[in-house]
């Protein structure tokens, strides 16, 4: 092999190997810890304080079992029907700090929109719908919602609603909720 060819081979090797070595070093040197949520308030049982509310001609019910809140309704369901579980007390924490709602949701189908409403005061003018979403499967979905984007802050909440809204005509709909918490974000 001539010297010139050897140089070319060395050059090609350097072009390939240097980036690989560089990546390997970076992977060791750069910190890997990422983001984590610190819980300020949580409800994992849904055993107390939750009451049922609904809008529309619907046979509504709610129950909680094994840490899962079930919000159910059947009958001649129409678009816009609402069924919701409400909790109105013991929600005192710093919303400026714990501004992320973390919750897992499962619905009965994409005709049922999961719906979360935050009331900062008893006046309906201060009720903020922060989530209205459909899923096309029956898996648990982890949702994290930044309340600051809705202009929600303060030191307490008047009420939180977990429920569903009917999107298309149907006969029964269910939304399940678990692991509800208000958290702050820590970035390391």
């Amino acid at each position: 092999m001539t010297r010139k060819r050897l140089n070319v081979v060395m050059l090609i090797l350097a072009i390939i190997l240097i980036p690989v070595a560089y990546l390997a070093i970076l992977n060791i040197v750069i910190p890997k810890d990422g983001t984590r949520f610190l819980i300020g308030w949580e409800d994992n049982t849904f055993q107390t304080e939750w009451t049922l509310a609904y809008l529309g001609p619907v046979n509504a019910s709610m129950s909680s079992e094994s840490g899962v809140l079930k919000v159910f309704g059947d009958g001649d369901l129409k678009e816009g029907n609402l069924v919701t579980a409400q909790r109105t007390s013991d929600l005192e924490f710093d919303l400026n700090k714990y501004k992320y709602i973390n919750v897992s949701i499962m619905t009965s189908g994409f005709d049922t929109a999961a719906r979360i409403v935050i009331w900062t005061e008893s006046n309906p003018d201060y009720a903020y719908t922060v989530l209205l979403k459909t899923y096309n499967d029956t898996n648990w979905h982890t949702e994290i919602i930044d309340l600051s984007y809705f202009g929600i802050d303060g030191s307490s909440l008047f009420m939180i609603e977990l429920g569903w809204m009917q999107l298309y005509d149907g006969s029964s709909s269910t939304a399940f909720y678990r692991q509800l918490s208000f958290s702050s974000l820590e970035v390391t």
């Binding site: 994409f110 929109a113 719908t129 922060v130 989530l131 209205l132 979403k133 979905h141």
Partner: peptide, 11 residues
């Protein structure tokens, strides 16, 4: 892909 949109999002 069924991307689920949060229609309550203010933006």
């Amino acid at each position: 892909y069924y991307e689920s949109a949060n229609t309550a999002w203010p933006y």
